[in-house]
Amino acid sequence: MTPTRKKRMTVVLLILLGVGIAAAIAMTALQENLLYFVSPSDVAADKMPAGRQFRLGGLVKDGSVVRANESLEIHFVVTDGPEDVAVVFNDILPDLFREGQGIIAIGALDTAGVFQADEVLAKHDEEYMPPEVADALEKTGHTVADQNAAAENKP
């Protein structure tokens, strides 16, 4: 390689390196803001102040969904395992909303520590399968999550 080409190659590599470092620093600094949602454990640890808007993410706890008779109002609990947060929502839910589903609720805690959601989004997982397979898994007593865990534990 001629000296000029070597020099140009060095310049190209330096550009890549410089921009890479700059981006890494910027991302570390912005880490908190890039988090799209906070988990119930974060809520328990941080004690998000009442009235401050944030996004709460987690699974809808099994058996926690209570619908009101005469209105759209729905109560449910969002959990990440160790911690729970009670949520109230008063609008139309996405199709994928169900117990055990990952969701993101946008809203704020009230003074009683209940999360008042203005919007609820369903977060679907990276798992795709035909309904028959999901049913079969269900019947044998395995959930999709179990199968995931099994797949991940494979050596």
């Binding site: 890039l34 799209y36 839910l93 996405p94 199709d95 994928l96 909303f97 919007e119 609820v120 989004l121 369903a122 977060k123 679907h124």
Partner: peptide, 12 residues
């Protein structure tokens, strides 16, 4: 829209 319930969010 049909899956999440929104057209757009500002996630990463």
């Amino acid at each position: 829209k049909p899956t999440w319930g929104t057209y757009w969010v500002w996630d990463a």
